[in-house]
Design a protein around this nucleic acid. Sequence first.
DNA 1: TGCCTTTGGTCTAGTTTCCGATCCATGAAG
DNA 2: CTTCATGGATCGGAAACTAGACCAAAGGCA
Lengths: 234, 234
Amino acid sequence: MLWGLRPLEPKAAHGLAVDLLQRQIHSGLLLPDERLPAERQLSDQFGISRVTLREALRVLETNRYISVRRGAQGGAFVSDADRLGQMARRRIARAPAASMRVVEYLVVNQSAAARFAALRRGPADLKKMREALALMRDAPDAARRKQAETLFLLAVADSAQNPLLSRGVEDAIAELFLPFETAPEDGSVTAALAAYQALLAALEAESPGDADRAMEMVNARFWGAIRQITRSAA
Amino acid sequence: MLWGLRPLEPKAAHGLAVDLLQRQIHSGLLLPDERLPAERQLSDQFGISRVTLREALRVLETNRYISVRRGAQGGAFVSDADRLGQMARRRIARAPAASMRVVEYLVVNQSAAARFAALRRGPADLKKMREALALMRDAPDAARRKQAETLFLLAVADSAQNPLLSRGVEDAIAELFLPFETAPEDGSVTAALAAYQALLAALEAESPGDADRAMEMVNARFWGAIRQITRSAA
DNA sequence: TGCCTTTGGTCTAGTTTCCGATCCATGAAG
DNA sequence: CTTCATGGATCGGAAACTAGACCAAAGGCA
Protein backbone atom coordinates (compact mmCIF):
# COMPACT_ATOMS: atom_id res chain seq x y z
CA MET A 1 0.00 0.00 0.00
CA LEU A 2 1.24 3.48 -0.86
CA TRP A 3 1.15 5.90 2.06
CA GLY A 4 0.62 9.61 2.28
CA LEU A 5 0.44 10.32 -1.42
CA ARG A 6 0.62 14.00 -2.19
CA PRO A 7 1.01 15.68 -5.57
CA LEU A 8 4.67 16.15 -6.44
CA GLU A 9 5.91 19.72 -6.46
CA PRO A 10 8.76 20.07 -8.92
CA LYS A 11 10.89 23.08 -7.98
CA ALA A 12 11.77 25.37 -10.87
CA ALA A 13 15.39 26.39 -11.33
CA HIS A 14 14.73 30.01 -10.46
CA GLY A 15 12.98 28.86 -7.27
CA LEU A 16 16.14 27.07 -6.19
CA ALA A 17 18.16 30.24 -6.72
CA VAL A 18 15.63 32.21 -4.66
CA ASP A 19 15.86 29.71 -1.83
CA LEU A 20 19.64 29.65 -1.83
CA LEU A 21 20.00 33.42 -1.69
CA GLN A 22 17.18 33.81 0.81
CA ARG A 23 18.78 31.26 3.11
CA GLN A 24 22.09 33.08 3.02
CA ILE A 25 20.35 36.32 3.94
CA HIS A 26 18.37 34.62 6.71
CA SER A 27 21.46 33.01 8.19
CA GLY A 28 23.34 36.30 8.05
CA LEU A 29 26.07 35.08 5.68
CA LEU A 30 24.99 37.73 3.19
CA LEU A 31 25.34 41.07 4.94
CA PRO A 32 22.93 44.02 4.74
CA ASP A 33 23.72 46.43 1.87
CA GLU A 34 26.10 43.87 0.41
CA ARG A 35 26.30 43.77 -3.37
CA LEU A 36 25.76 40.44 -5.11
CA PRO A 37 28.00 39.43 -8.02
CA ALA A 38 26.94 40.68 -11.46
CA GLU A 39 24.12 38.78 -13.14
CA ARG A 40 26.36 37.25 -15.77
CA GLN A 41 28.79 36.00 -13.14
CA LEU A 42 26.15 34.76 -10.71
CA SER A 43 24.17 32.89 -13.36
CA ASP A 44 27.41 31.24 -14.39
CA GLN A 45 28.20 30.15 -10.82
CA PHE A 46 24.69 28.78 -10.34
CA GLY A 47 24.85 26.99 -13.67
CA ILE A 48 21.64 28.60 -14.90
CA SER A 49 20.94 31.08 -17.67
CA ARG A 50 20.89 34.78 -17.02
CA VAL A 51 17.18 35.00 -17.82
CA THR A 52 16.40 32.40 -15.17
CA LEU A 53 18.59 34.07 -12.59
CA ARG A 54 16.83 37.37 -13.29
CA GLU A 55 13.52 35.69 -12.50
CA ALA A 56 14.95 34.78 -9.12
CA LEU A 57 16.22 38.31 -8.48
CA ARG A 58 12.78 39.67 -9.40
CA VAL A 59 11.17 37.45 -6.75
CA LEU A 60 13.69 38.52 -4.10
CA GLU A 61 13.16 42.15 -5.07
CA THR A 62 9.39 41.77 -4.79
CA ASN A 63 9.83 40.30 -1.32
CA ARG A 64 12.12 43.18 -0.35
CA TYR A 65 15.17 41.02 0.24
CA ILE A 66 17.19 42.93 -2.35
CA SER A 67 16.98 46.02 -4.50
CA VAL A 68 18.43 46.27 -7.99
CA ARG A 69 20.12 49.32 -9.48
CA ARG A 70 21.41 49.90 -12.99
CA GLY A 71 24.59 51.52 -14.18
CA ALA A 72 28.30 50.93 -13.97
CA GLN A 73 28.34 50.63 -10.15
CA GLY A 74 24.88 49.06 -10.05
CA GLY A 75 23.87 45.53 -9.23
CA ALA A 76 21.67 43.66 -6.78
CA PHE A 77 22.06 44.88 -3.19
CA VAL A 78 20.86 43.15 -0.06
CA SER A 79 18.35 45.29 1.84
CA ASP A 80 19.58 47.41 4.72
CA ALA A 81 19.82 46.19 8.31
CA ASP A 82 16.66 47.99 9.44
CA ARG A 83 14.49 46.43 6.79
CA LEU A 84 15.95 42.94 7.30
CA GLY A 85 15.55 43.21 11.05
CA GLN A 86 11.95 44.27 10.66
CA MET A 87 11.25 41.38 8.30
CA ALA A 88 12.86 38.96 10.74
CA ARG A 89 10.83 40.20 13.69
CA ARG A 90 7.60 40.15 11.73
CA ARG A 91 8.27 36.64 10.56
CA ILE A 92 8.75 35.40 14.11
CA ALA A 93 5.92 37.44 15.57
CA ARG A 94 3.51 36.21 12.91
CA ALA A 95 4.03 32.53 13.79
CA PRO A 96 5.89 32.21 17.09
CA ALA A 97 5.00 28.53 17.49
CA ALA A 98 6.63 27.68 14.17
CA SER A 99 9.83 29.51 15.12
CA MET A 100 9.91 27.71 18.45
CA ARG A 101 9.68 24.37 16.68
CA VAL A 102 12.61 25.36 14.51
CA VAL A 103 14.66 26.30 17.57
CA GLU A 104 13.64 23.02 19.16
CA TYR A 105 15.01 21.13 16.16
CA LEU A 106 18.10 23.31 16.08
CA VAL A 107 18.83 22.69 19.75
CA VAL A 108 18.49 18.93 19.40
CA ASN A 109 20.80 18.67 16.42
CA GLN A 110 23.24 21.34 17.47
CA SER A 111 23.74 19.69 20.85
CA ALA A 112 24.35 16.35 19.22
CA ALA A 113 26.72 17.96 16.74
CA ALA A 114 28.71 19.52 19.59
CA ARG A 115 29.11 16.16 21.34
CA PHE A 116 30.28 14.40 18.18
CA ALA A 117 32.45 17.35 17.19
CA ALA A 118 34.36 17.06 20.46
CA LEU A 119 35.50 13.59 19.38
CA ARG A 120 35.91 14.12 15.66
CA ARG A 121 37.05 17.68 15.04
CA GLY A 122 40.29 18.05 13.13
CA PRO A 123 42.86 20.86 13.16
CA ALA A 124 41.19 22.48 10.13
CA ASP A 125 37.86 22.56 11.97
CA LEU A 126 39.37 24.23 15.02
CA LYS A 127 41.10 26.75 12.79
CA LYS A 128 37.80 27.72 11.18
CA MET A 129 36.21 28.15 14.61
CA ARG A 130 39.02 30.31 15.89
CA GLU A 131 38.79 32.50 12.82
CA ALA A 132 35.03 32.85 13.28
CA LEU A 133 35.56 33.74 16.93
CA ALA A 134 38.10 36.41 15.95
CA LEU A 135 35.62 37.83 13.44
CA MET A 136 32.98 37.92 16.16
CA ARG A 137 35.28 39.71 18.58
CA ASP A 138 36.37 42.33 16.05
CA ALA A 139 32.97 42.76 14.41
CA PRO A 140 32.11 46.46 13.93
CA ASP A 141 28.34 45.88 13.99
CA ALA A 142 25.59 43.41 14.86
CA ALA A 143 25.32 42.09 11.32
CA ARG A 144 28.97 41.04 11.29
CA ARG A 145 28.54 39.46 14.70
CA LYS A 146 25.62 37.39 13.46
CA GLN A 147 27.60 36.40 10.37
CA ALA A 148 30.50 35.23 12.52
CA GLU A 149 28.11 33.39 14.83
CA THR A 150 26.65 31.47 11.88
CA LEU A 151 30.11 30.69 10.55
CA PHE A 152 31.12 29.34 13.95
CA LEU A 153 28.05 27.15 14.35
CA LEU A 154 28.33 25.79 10.81
CA ALA A 155 31.98 24.94 11.49
CA VAL A 156 30.95 23.04 14.63
CA ALA A 157 28.22 21.19 12.76
CA ASP A 158 30.61 20.33 9.95
CA SER A 159 33.22 18.96 12.29
CA ALA A 160 30.72 16.41 13.58
CA GLN A 161 31.39 14.63 10.27
CA ASN A 162 27.73 13.78 9.78
CA PRO A 163 26.15 15.13 6.58
CA LEU A 164 22.59 14.76 7.86
CA LEU A 165 23.37 16.59 11.08
CA SER A 166 25.15 19.33 9.15
CA ARG A 167 22.23 19.76 6.81
CA GLY A 168 19.81 19.80 9.72
CA VAL A 169 21.67 22.58 11.53
CA GLU A 170 22.07 24.53 8.29
CA ASP A 171 18.37 24.20 7.47
CA ALA A 172 17.31 25.28 10.93
CA ILE A 173 19.57 28.35 10.98
CA ALA A 174 18.36 29.41 7.53
CA GLU A 175 14.73 28.80 8.47
CA LEU A 176 15.01 30.79 11.69
CA PHE A 177 15.91 34.24 10.33
CA LEU A 178 16.72 35.90 13.65
CA PRO A 179 17.18 39.69 13.71
CA PHE A 180 20.69 40.99 14.17
CA GLU A 181 20.58 41.80 17.82
CA THR A 182 17.79 41.68 20.31
CA ALA A 183 19.36 43.86 22.97
CA PRO A 184 22.34 45.88 21.82
CA GLU A 185 22.71 47.69 25.12
CA ASP A 186 23.10 44.96 27.69
CA GLY A 187 26.00 42.59 28.09
CA SER A 188 24.65 40.00 25.67
CA VAL A 189 27.56 40.50 23.30
CA THR A 190 30.20 39.60 25.85
CA ALA A 191 27.98 36.80 27.15
CA ALA A 192 27.75 35.36 23.65
CA LEU A 193 31.48 35.59 23.19
CA ALA A 194 32.01 33.75 26.46
CA ALA A 195 29.64 30.96 25.43
CA TYR A 196 31.33 30.44 22.08
CA GLN A 197 34.74 30.59 23.70
CA ALA A 198 33.71 27.92 26.20
CA LEU A 199 32.41 25.78 23.35
CA LEU A 200 35.65 26.12 21.44
CA ALA A 201 37.65 25.24 24.57
CA ALA A 202 35.54 22.11 25.10
CA LEU A 203 36.08 21.01 21.50
CA GLU A 204 39.81 21.66 21.79
CA ALA A 205 39.86 19.58 24.96
CA GLU A 206 37.92 16.78 23.24
CA SER A 207 35.34 16.87 26.00
CA PRO A 208 31.83 15.99 24.80
CA GLY A 209 30.26 16.75 28.16
CA ASP A 210 31.69 20.25 28.35
CA ALA A 211 30.81 20.85 24.70
CA ASP A 212 27.22 19.86 25.39
CA ARG A 213 27.00 22.23 28.35
CA ALA A 214 28.60 25.09 26.40
CA MET A 215 26.21 24.52 23.51
CA GLU A 216 23.37 24.71 26.01
CA MET A 217 24.39 28.28 26.78
CA VAL A 218 24.46 29.09 23.07
CA ASN A 219 21.06 27.54 22.57
CA ALA A 220 19.67 29.40 25.55
CA ARG A 221 20.46 32.61 23.69
CA PHE A 222 18.34 31.45 20.75
CA TRP A 223 15.43 30.75 23.08
CA GLY A 224 15.91 34.14 24.69
CA ALA A 225 15.85 35.93 21.35
CA ILE A 226 12.60 34.23 20.32
CA ARG A 227 11.02 34.88 23.71
CA GLN A 228 11.95 38.54 23.65
CA ILE A 229 10.51 39.11 20.17
CA THR A 230 7.25 37.35 20.90
CA ARG A 231 6.88 39.28 24.16
CA SER A 232 7.59 42.67 22.61
CA ALA A 233 5.09 41.87 19.84
CA ALA A 234 2.32 41.12 22.34
CA MET B 1 30.15 37.56 0.60
CA LEU B 2 28.39 34.54 -0.85
CA TRP B 3 29.43 31.27 0.75
CA GLY B 4 29.72 27.78 -0.59
CA LEU B 5 28.35 28.42 -4.05
CA ARG B 6 27.62 25.26 -5.92
CA PRO B 7 25.76 24.83 -9.23
CA LEU B 8 22.03 24.43 -8.66
CA GLU B 9 20.61 21.02 -9.41
CA PRO B 10 16.99 21.37 -10.47
CA LYS B 11 15.20 18.07 -9.86
CA ALA B 12 13.08 16.89 -12.77
CA ALA B 13 9.52 15.80 -12.07
CA HIS B 14 10.22 12.16 -12.86
CA GLY B 15 13.15 12.27 -10.47
CA LEU B 16 10.85 13.31 -7.66
CA ALA B 17 8.58 10.37 -8.41
CA VAL B 18 11.56 8.02 -8.36
CA ASP B 19 12.65 9.35 -4.98
CA LEU B 20 9.20 9.10 -3.46
CA LEU B 21 8.66 5.49 -4.51
CA GLN B 22 12.20 4.48 -3.62
CA ARG B 23 11.81 5.96 -0.17
CA GLN B 24 8.63 4.02 0.43
CA ILE B 25 10.36 0.82 -0.60
CA HIS B 26 13.37 1.57 1.58
CA SER B 27 11.23 2.32 4.61
CA GLY B 28 9.21 -0.84 4.09
CA LEU B 29 5.88 0.90 3.57
CA LEU B 30 5.71 -0.62 0.11
CA LEU B 31 5.86 -4.39 0.57
CA PRO B 32 7.79 -6.88 -1.58
CA ASP B 33 5.79 -8.21 -4.54
CA GLU B 34 3.21 -5.51 -3.98
CA ARG B 35 1.53 -4.12 -7.08
CA LEU B 36 1.57 -0.35 -7.60
CA PRO B 37 -1.57 1.41 -8.82
CA ALA B 38 -2.06 1.53 -12.59
CA GLU B 39 -0.01 4.11 -14.46
CA ARG B 40 -3.02 6.28 -15.26
CA GLN B 41 -4.10 6.32 -11.64
CA LEU B 42 -0.63 6.85 -10.18
CA SER B 43 0.26 9.69 -12.55
CA ASP B 44 -3.00 11.32 -11.54
CA GLN B 45 -2.21 11.03 -7.82
CA PHE B 46 1.28 12.44 -8.34
CA GLY B 47 -0.09 15.26 -10.44
CA ILE B 48 2.26 14.44 -13.34
CA SER B 49 1.61 13.16 -16.83
CA ARG B 50 1.64 9.48 -17.61
CA VAL B 51 4.67 9.88 -19.86
CA THR B 52 6.64 11.44 -17.01
CA LEU B 53 5.55 8.77 -14.55
CA ARG B 54 6.66 6.10 -17.00
CA GLU B 55 10.12 7.67 -17.05
CA ALA B 56 10.24 7.22 -13.30
CA LEU B 57 9.10 3.60 -13.49
CA ARG B 58 11.78 2.93 -16.10
CA VAL B 59 14.45 4.21 -13.72
CA LEU B 60 13.16 2.10 -10.84
CA GLU B 61 12.99 -0.93 -13.14
CA THR B 62 16.59 -0.35 -14.25
CA ASN B 63 17.66 -0.22 -10.61
CA ARG B 64 15.76 -3.46 -9.87
CA TYR B 65 13.34 -1.88 -7.42
CA ILE B 66 10.33 -2.94 -9.48
CA SER B 67 9.47 -5.07 -12.48
CA VAL B 68 6.77 -4.17 -14.96
CA ARG B 69 4.45 -6.67 -16.63
CA ARG B 70 1.89 -6.09 -19.37
CA GLY B 71 -1.59 -7.50 -19.76
CA ALA B 72 -4.87 -7.37 -17.92
CA GLN B 73 -3.41 -8.30 -14.53
CA GLY B 74 -0.11 -6.60 -15.25
CA GLY B 75 1.35 -3.53 -13.67
CA ALA B 76 4.44 -2.45 -11.76
CA PHE B 77 5.43 -4.87 -8.99
CA VAL B 78 7.87 -4.23 -6.18
CA SER B 79 10.77 -6.70 -6.29
CA ASP B 80 10.63 -9.78 -4.08
CA ALA B 81 11.88 -9.91 -0.51
CA ASP B 82 15.11 -11.75 -1.42
CA ARG B 83 16.16 -9.18 -3.97
CA LEU B 84 15.26 -6.21 -1.75
CA GLY B 85 17.08 -7.76 1.18
CA GLN B 86 20.16 -8.32 -0.92
CA MET B 87 20.05 -4.73 -2.20
CA ALA B 88 19.70 -3.45 1.36
CA ARG B 89 22.63 -5.49 2.66
CA ARG B 90 24.83 -4.50 -0.27
CA ARG B 91 23.98 -0.86 0.22
CA ILE B 92 25.03 -0.98 3.86
CA ALA B 93 28.07 -3.19 3.30
CA ARG B 94 29.32 -0.91 0.52
CA ALA B 95 29.43 2.17 2.77
CA PRO B 96 29.04 1.16 6.42
CA ALA B 97 30.26 4.52 7.69
CA ALA B 98 27.52 6.35 5.79
CA SER B 99 24.83 4.06 7.21
CA MET B 100 26.18 4.60 10.71
CA ARG B 101 25.93 8.36 10.25
CA VAL B 102 22.33 7.95 9.21
CA VAL B 103 21.58 5.86 12.29
CA GLU B 104 23.36 8.45 14.38
CA TYR B 105 21.09 11.16 13.04
CA LEU B 106 18.04 8.92 13.40
CA VAL B 107 18.86 8.18 17.04
CA VAL B 108 19.31 11.84 17.91
CA ASN B 109 16.05 12.94 16.35
CA GLN B 110 14.02 9.89 17.27
CA SER B 111 15.00 10.23 20.92
CA ALA B 112 14.04 13.88 20.93
CA ALA B 113 10.78 13.06 19.18
CA ALA B 114 9.97 10.46 21.85
CA ARG B 115 10.52 12.95 24.65
CA PHE B 116 8.35 15.60 23.04
CA ALA B 117 5.74 13.05 22.03
CA ALA B 118 5.31 12.04 25.65
CA LEU B 119 4.08 15.55 26.39
CA ARG B 120 2.20 16.33 23.19
CA ARG B 121 0.68 13.12 21.86
CA GLY B 122 -3.08 13.18 21.36
CA PRO B 123 -5.61 10.33 21.42
CA ALA B 124 -5.40 9.99 17.63
CA ASP B 125 -1.62 9.55 17.86
CA LEU B 126 -1.93 6.82 20.48
CA LYS B 127 -4.56 5.09 18.37
CA LYS B 128 -2.22 5.00 15.37
CA MET B 129 0.55 3.55 17.54
CA ARG B 130 -1.71 0.86 18.98
CA GLU B 131 -2.84 -0.11 15.51
CA ALA B 132 0.76 -0.32 14.31
CA LEU B 133 1.64 -2.45 17.33
CA ALA B 134 -1.24 -4.82 16.56
CA LEU B 135 -0.05 -5.07 12.96
CA MET B 136 3.43 -5.89 14.23
CA ARG B 137 2.14 -8.60 16.56
CA ASP B 138 -0.02 -10.27 13.91
CA ALA B 139 2.43 -9.83 11.04
CA PRO B 140 2.80 -13.06 9.01
CA ASP B 141 6.30 -12.26 7.80
CA ALA B 142 9.33 -10.04 8.33
CA ALA B 143 8.28 -7.56 5.65
CA ARG B 144 5.00 -6.84 7.43
CA ARG B 145 6.84 -6.49 10.72
CA LYS B 146 9.18 -3.91 9.21
CA GLN B 147 6.22 -2.08 7.71
CA ALA B 148 4.46 -1.95 11.09
CA GLU B 149 7.69 -0.83 12.76
CA THR B 150 8.01 2.09 10.35
CA LEU B 151 4.36 3.02 10.83
CA PHE B 152 4.86 3.02 14.59
CA LEU B 153 7.98 5.18 14.48
CA LEU B 154 6.44 7.65 12.05
CA ALA B 155 3.43 7.94 14.35
CA VAL B 156 5.71 8.71 17.28
CA ALA B 157 7.61 11.30 15.27
CA ASP B 158 4.39 12.89 14.10
CA SER B 159 3.00 13.17 17.59
CA ALA B 160 5.99 15.31 18.59
CA GLN B 161 4.24 18.07 16.63
CA ASN B 162 7.44 19.31 15.10
CA PRO B 163 7.54 19.27 11.27
CA LEU B 164 11.34 19.44 11.10
CA LEU B 165 11.75 16.55 13.52
CA SER B 166 9.15 14.52 11.62
CA ARG B 167 10.88 15.14 8.34
CA GLY B 168 14.23 14.27 9.87
CA VAL B 169 13.04 10.91 11.16
CA GLU B 170 11.28 10.18 7.89
CA ASP B 171 14.37 11.06 5.86
CA ALA B 172 16.62 8.92 8.01
CA ILE B 173 14.36 5.86 7.88
CA ALA B 174 14.04 6.18 4.10
CA GLU B 175 17.78 6.70 3.71
CA LEU B 176 18.66 3.70 5.86
CA PHE B 177 17.08 0.87 3.84
CA LEU B 178 17.51 -1.89 6.40
CA PRO B 179 16.86 -5.48 5.32
CA PHE B 180 13.75 -7.16 6.64
CA GLU B 181 15.23 -9.15 9.45
CA THR B 182 18.75 -9.68 10.50
CA ALA B 183 18.22 -12.76 12.65
CA PRO B 184 14.90 -14.52 12.11
CA GLU B 185 15.76 -17.38 14.47
CA ASP B 186 16.55 -15.71 17.75
CA GLY B 187 14.20 -13.87 20.04
CA SER B 188 14.65 -10.51 18.36
CA VAL B 189 11.01 -10.38 17.30
CA THR B 190 9.64 -10.61 20.83
CA ALA B 191 12.39 -8.27 22.03
CA ALA B 192 11.34 -5.71 19.45
CA LEU B 193 7.71 -6.04 20.44
CA ALA B 194 8.63 -5.49 24.08
CA ALA B 195 10.59 -2.36 23.23
CA TYR B 196 7.79 -0.82 21.22
CA GLN B 197 5.25 -1.78 23.88
CA ALA B 198 7.37 -0.07 26.53
CA LEU B 199 7.60 3.01 24.32
CA LEU B 200 3.84 3.10 23.86
CA ALA B 201 3.30 2.70 27.61
CA ALA B 202 5.65 5.60 28.33
CA LEU B 203 3.85 7.83 25.85
CA GLU B 204 0.49 6.85 27.32
CA ALA B 205 1.81 7.69 30.78
CA GLU B 206 3.14 11.05 29.51
CA SER B 207 6.58 10.19 30.84
CA PRO B 208 9.39 11.70 28.75
CA GLY B 209 12.10 9.95 30.73
CA ASP B 210 10.60 6.50 30.24
CA ALA B 211 9.93 7.28 26.56
CA ASP B 212 13.57 8.22 26.09
CA ARG B 213 14.76 5.01 27.71
CA ALA B 214 12.33 2.90 25.68
CA MET B 215 13.44 4.61 22.47
CA GLU B 216 17.01 3.77 23.44
CA MET B 217 16.10 0.09 23.27
CA VAL B 218 14.54 0.60 19.85
CA ASN B 219 17.59 2.49 18.62
CA ALA B 220 19.89 -0.18 19.99
CA ARG B 221 18.21 -2.61 17.59
CA PHE B 222 19.09 -0.34 14.66
CA TRP B 223 22.71 -0.27 15.74
CA GLY B 224 22.66 -4.04 16.13
CA ALA B 225 21.30 -4.54 12.63
CA ILE B 226 23.99 -2.35 11.08
CA ARG B 227 26.71 -4.02 13.12
CA GLN B 228 25.58 -7.49 12.16
CA ILE B 229 25.52 -6.70 8.44
CA THR B 230 28.92 -5.05 8.41
CA ARG B 231 30.41 -7.97 10.38
CA SER B 232 28.93 -10.64 8.13
CA ALA B 233 30.19 -8.72 5.08
CA ALA B 234 33.74 -8.67 6.39
C1' DT C 1 32.14 67.87 -21.91
C1' DG C 2 32.05 63.50 -23.98
C1' DC C 3 33.76 58.92 -24.36
C1' DC C 4 34.35 54.37 -22.04
C1' DT C 5 33.18 50.71 -19.22
C1' DT C 6 30.28 48.15 -16.32
C1' DT C 7 26.06 46.89 -15.31
C1' DG C 8 21.01 45.81 -15.70
C1' DG C 9 17.03 45.49 -19.36
C1' DT C 10 15.13 43.43 -23.49
C1' DC C 11 14.43 40.55 -27.40
C1' DT C 12 14.76 36.32 -30.41
C1' DA C 13 15.59 31.65 -31.78
C1' DG C 14 16.19 27.11 -30.38
C1' DT C 15 16.19 23.13 -26.96
C1' DT C 16 14.38 20.36 -23.27
C1' DT C 17 10.84 18.82 -20.39
C1' DC C 18 6.37 18.00 -19.57
C1' DC C 19 1.49 17.52 -20.77
C1' DG C 20 -2.81 15.80 -22.86
C1' DA C 21 -4.66 12.78 -25.85
C1' DT C 22 -5.05 9.02 -28.95
C1' DC C 23 -4.28 4.58 -30.55
C1' DC C 24 -1.85 -0.03 -30.38
C1' DA C 25 -0.23 -4.53 -28.03
C1' DT C 26 -0.57 -7.79 -24.47
C1' DG C 27 -2.47 -11.35 -21.77
C1' DA C 28 -5.41 -13.22 -18.06
C1' DA C 29 -10.34 -13.99 -16.92
C1' DG C 30 -14.67 -15.49 -18.19
C1' DC D 1 -12.50 -16.59 -28.36
C1' DT D 2 -14.13 -12.35 -26.75
C1' DT D 3 -13.53 -8.85 -23.32
C1' DC D 4 -11.04 -5.33 -21.15
C1' DA D 5 -7.71 -3.54 -17.88
C1' DT D 6 -3.29 -2.79 -18.37
C1' DG D 7 1.38 -1.27 -20.33
C1' DG D 8 3.65 0.65 -24.85
C1' DA D 9 4.20 4.14 -28.32
C1' DT D 10 3.49 8.40 -30.79
C1' DC D 11 2.18 13.27 -31.85
C1' DG D 12 1.23 18.27 -31.23
C1' DG D 13 1.48 21.88 -28.17
C1' DA D 14 2.71 24.48 -23.85
C1' DA D 15 6.04 25.98 -20.56
C1' DA D 16 10.62 26.54 -18.79
C1' DC D 17 15.18 27.13 -19.75
C1' DT D 18 19.32 28.37 -22.68
C1' DA D 19 22.43 31.03 -25.56
C1' DG D 20 23.48 34.98 -27.69
C1' DA D 21 22.97 39.56 -29.29
C1' DC D 22 21.84 44.20 -28.61
C1' DC D 23 19.94 48.39 -25.98
C1' DA D 24 19.88 51.64 -21.92
C1' DA D 25 21.55 53.59 -17.82
C1' DA D 26 25.05 55.63 -14.93
C1' DG D 27 29.42 56.29 -12.78
C1' DG D 28 34.51 57.14 -13.87
C1' DC D 29 37.85 59.47 -16.36
C1' DA D 30 40.56 62.01 -19.92
